[in-house]
Design a binder for these strands. Structure first.
Lengths: 339, 339
DNA sequence: TCAAAGTACTAAACCGGTATACCACTGGTC
DNA sequence: GACCAGTGGTATACCGGTTTAGTACTTTGA
């Protein structure tokens, strides 16, 4: 008998059935070494007692925590409004949960903290692996995880990275599709407002947009870098519009940026889309909150999270990193780029 | 010596210093039983080897996981845009991290899953306690956590609950302040659009708004319940506006609702604030994305998360639940309720 | 001067699983 | 009838910490 309140252990089951802990462990894990009859009695006892494996005990024996770590580095003020992270967290959690794993999360304002958190998690054996997002050019986290030998998947990396699993995306076709869409509407002065140049994907998109623009128009496009802060996005846009030959269309690097601009179009002195067409990278219901609604390139964050998780799990099993592609982006045309 | 790649354990330290594991444990935990000299040598060795405690090993010994669980039940489509959850998660994580604990997160679409997840977490010894939000009237989760005896804090409960720690808020004064603000602008037909009646806080605010309205105007206000889906929020609003004596001001139960309405005001055939003043419960940068900007009652989600965590930690230590108040809400007046 | 108390440890059990070595018994085989 | 393989277990070590019981040595007090 197990006294009430105490959660049953395999020792309780062993005592009930009259076998040893070892036999119980074999039976519960479906491995040979116990007769069909004994196995059935053990499973019945486990069921009756309401036994569930202690994840800590199992982890200690396995030397595996069953958790995967994610450090979110974003200013707290931005955390709620930028939809990407919550969707990513939900997607990762869903995929991990399906594999009996869990997500260990840390939120910090300061990008420099991340490597230190990884180090602590790893040495405290809290995580089996990591998910990295928003890689920067020369990201110090890469050195940290490879030095420590932490199995890691980099989500949204511009290209494969040695020793890491990566989910990479080629933004070239999407950027060309953006230009084609806008050019098809008659625009020929098309600018782009990008995230901070420090982000690897921003730098890469910057180059690819320039290349696509040259192919199409034979000239270099105007591009600005800005942080994801309303004032700065508007300031960057204003600067573009102050040009003697101002752009008639702008591609923004996130839906939040684009929505901010459409929301403040009157303050900028432009009408959307008559004076300025606005096109967003990333799509979310935010794009439907403002008028006109914002055209955007959607991608499937859930699917990308699941891809990252399956690569990481595979790497944990086999020891060798894998590579996959981000889900493709599809254009949803709304009012902000209406003809 | 520890071979490279292996993370050092207290046994390694013990071998280095020439003492037993027990002595090392005493020294590292700052408890009596070792001389100052030995303690210093042990700490030095730990430092030199880069030792950090294994949280799993410690958990197994403690019978405590060091984690607190939160189940987020929201349709995935809504998860990204509703800022509350990401802010709550960040706030909880911050407070837990400061105490050396971590947040175990599950995301599910279906409210009925939560109790089952709690049960699994508890029997697998994954969590020491839980944070509950968005309590429903007759919430089945309450029975689950009290049956299982899981230490739990209910965040945003309408009132104290037996056996649980609670962070409660009295919305009465805030609702009166909302009415005062709007009445001060000359409004006397003030309606309210609330979240689903199944939520305890929605039901309670419904009653308190009615009471405050009666005190001020002597009549019962028009109130509608709706889910947090754009179409339904607009439909509920349209229904209010179809009244022969339509409201000139509406208080919405979330910033997302209010922003949706302001964003779609043209489609509703009203001008904000000329025809319809809009006031939001909850504030976030979303309120600044639309024109006019949305007036809102802000509250400090971070602080409330920290309060919940500290109550729960106290309950884990002492065994007795505690109670505290939600942070007060403060009104930020913006264009949607301009005079 | 000798018992009592304190100090600084060691040895070993324990948390709840997993994994490995070994043992008893059965049945088939040459 | 001895040898072998296979079956169904038992006993035990192990993961990396914490904790308790026990012990050798020093200090204190009457």
């Amino acid at each position: 008998m197990v006294e009430p309140g105490r959660r049953p252990t395999i020792a309780d089951i062993a005592r009930e059935v009259g076998v040893t802990k070892g036999a119980v462990s074999f039976a519960l894990n479906g491995r040979p070494g116990v007769s069909a009859d004994t196995r059935a009695r053990i499973l019945a006892a486990a069921e009756r007692l309401g036994w569930r494996p202690s994840t800590v005990a199992r982890s200690l024996s396995n030397l595996r925590s069953g958790s995967v770590g994610l450090v979110v580095t974003r200013p707290r003020s931005l955390l709620g409004v930028e939809p990407f992270y919550m969707r990513l967290i939900a997607g990762l959690e869903r995929a991990l949960h399906a594999d009996g794993r869990s997500l260990l999360l840390a939120v910090t304002d300061h990008p420099g903290d991340a490597a230190e958190i990884y180090r602590a998690w790893w040495s405290e054996r809290r995580v089996d692996g990591l998910v990295l997002t928003d890689l920067r050019t020369d990201d110090p986290r890469l050195a940290a995880v490879t030095d420590l030998g932490i199995p890691t998947v980099a989500l949204g990396a511009p290209g494969p990275l040695p020793g890491l699993s990566t989910v990479t995306g080629d933004d070239g076709p999407t950027l060309r599709a953006a230009l084609d869409h806008l050019a098809g509407l008659g625009h020929h002065r098309i600018a782009r407002v990008s995230g901070p140049a420090g982000f690897a994907h921003a730098a890469r998109r910057h180059a690819e947009f320039a290349a696509a623009h040259r192919t199409l128009f034979g000239t270099d496009p105007r591009q600005a870098h800005t942080r994801y802060v309303a004032d700065q996005v508007l300031a960057a846009t204003r600067e573009l519009l102050d040009d003697p030959e101002p752009p008639t269309a702008v591609v923004y690097d996130s839906d939040l940026m684009a929505v901010t601009v459409v929301g403040s179009a009157a303050e900028l002195g432009v009408r959307v889309p008559a004076d300025l067409a606005v096109l967003a990278w990333d799509d979310s219901p935010l794009c439907e909150l403002v008028r006109p609604r914002v055209s955007a390139f959607a991608h499937d964050v859930d699917a990308d999270g699941a891809t990252a998780v399956s690569l990481l799990i595979e790497q944990l099993r086999t020891g060798t990193p894998g590579h996959a592609e981000l889900s493709p982006r599809t254009l949803t045309v709304r009012g902000s780029t209406a003809g």
